[in-house]
Design a protein around this nucleic acid. Structure first.
Length: 356
DNA sequence: CTAACCCGAACAAACTTCCG
DNA sequence: CGGAAGTTTGTTCGGGTTAG
């Protein structure tokens, strides 16, 4: 890649701005007027500067949130600001220069709990699969807003898992809900042709006690950690293990709720206390979009939730705890997160050639 | 068949409250 | 008042499904 003369002169100007900033007492939180000749870094200059200083850096293998912090520190350094010990939750994160930073291994850009601000700038950083920074783009909010064609917000709720150190397994609900109870059995065997994502049917639904007995055996088992930023794939491994333990001959997940539709069972892997719940609130009496069973509609609160807690050590996930509850009783054991209660995010698909 | 969509996966940083 | 403990928000990854 050759640097043109034009780019050279922009870079020179940009470096002057960086010098001005580092010689000032300014922090990233101090306001700068847009276009200020001494301190404001225009987008073109910002992009060139960040490409110049960040490309080639190995970000290492960290969880998303840690990597994000590392990148923000790198950005501070690159443009002459001191690194704060923590990055305040301001909007945007870099108020002085009016920009946000996102590192995107994938093309799915997801601002949480806020919409795209047209005048704000967005610094998007593309690392390679092995975490080497390849490219930095600085774009105005208007450009990202144009890519948001649907405005669809994804919703999630959360709860907290308090671990009781003394008990490895807990059956939170002694019985299924009144609606489900008549439909379950303690003597179910799964025909090899059925898939975990088939609709549930009469005589095929295990009682919550049966599920508890079968899934207890998962505690103590371990499997390979798919990678620090591979939560989805890691969860899938547990899901697979659960299917096996319940007697399914195949593993299948279509991303719908509940995971194991055929048993009205939702499975979660936790290695930290925050439980993410997606759109559905477990205690909700909303009907699931499933065929009725004996004329009965299954509701969200009838679904059974299997929560597994695991620890990660040298590349292996080991399951240490297991909890099983109905949706109805869920919040009695796992308190719902207060505050926003509901978090939303936009999901904006960057064009394939966005970073080219 | 491909691109777009969006659903869901789960963890750690940041913030708040509690306790000495 | 400072650190610990608890709570809440933010970060971003990947897969299945659907629209074109």
């Amino acid at each position: 890649m050759s640097v043109t003369n034009n780019e050279q002169s922009i870079l020179k100007l940009a470096n002057n701005l960086v010098n001005n900033i580092s010689e000032s007492e300014l922090s990233i939180y101090d306001e700068i007027t847009v276009g200020d000749p001494n301190y404001w870094i225009p987008s073109r200059e910002l992009e060139l500067l960040l490409n110049e200083k960040l490309c080639g850096i190995d970000l290492g293998s960290y969880p998303n949130r840690t990597r994000s912090k590392i990148v923000k520190q790198l950005v501070c350094k690159a443009i002459g600001y001191p690194c704060p010990s923590s990055f305040k939750k301001t909007k945007p994160r870099f108020p002085g220069q009016n920009f946000d930073v996102a590192t995107q291994k994938s093309n799915n850009f997801q601002p949480v709990n806020e919409s795209i601000s047209p005048s704000r700038r967005y610094v998007l950083i593309r690392p390679s699969k092995d975490n080497i920074i390849q490219k930095v783009r600085v774009v105005p909010g208007t450009m990202l807003a144009a890519l948001d064609t649907t405005g669809k917000l994804t919703v999630k709720h959360q709860a907290t898992l308090h671990i009781n150190q003394n008990t490895a397994t807990e059956l939170v609900s002694q019985e299924d809900t009144n609606v489900l109870k008549p439909l379950v059995s303690s003597t179910v065997s799964i025909p090899s042709i059925v898939s975990p994502i088939d609709y549930p049917s009469r005589d095929c639904i295990m009682s919550i006690q049966t599920i508890y007995e079968k899934l207890k055996t998962v505690v103590g088992k371990s499997f390979n950690d798919a990678g620090i930023d591979q939560e989805r794939n890691r969860g899938a491994q547990l899901h697979n293990l659960v299917c096996q333990s319940l007697g399914y001959s195949s593993y299948k997940d279509d991303g719908r709720f509940p995971d194991l539709t055929h048993q009205l069972l939702e499975v979660k892997l936790q290695t930290s206390p925050t439980i993410d719940l997606g759109l559905d609130v477990p205690s909700s009496i909303e009907k699931l979009e499933l065929p009725q069973i004996d004329g009965v509609n299954i509701r969200v609160c009838d679904v059974r939730y299997a929560i597994f807690y695991g620890s990660i050590e040298d590349g292996k996930v080991t399951i240490t705890n297991f909890y099983l509850t109905t949706g109805e009783d869920f919040f009695s054991r796992f308190p719902q997160t207060q505050g926003n209660v509901q978090n939303t995010k936009l999901q904006i698909w960057l064009k394939k050639d966005f970073f080219d």
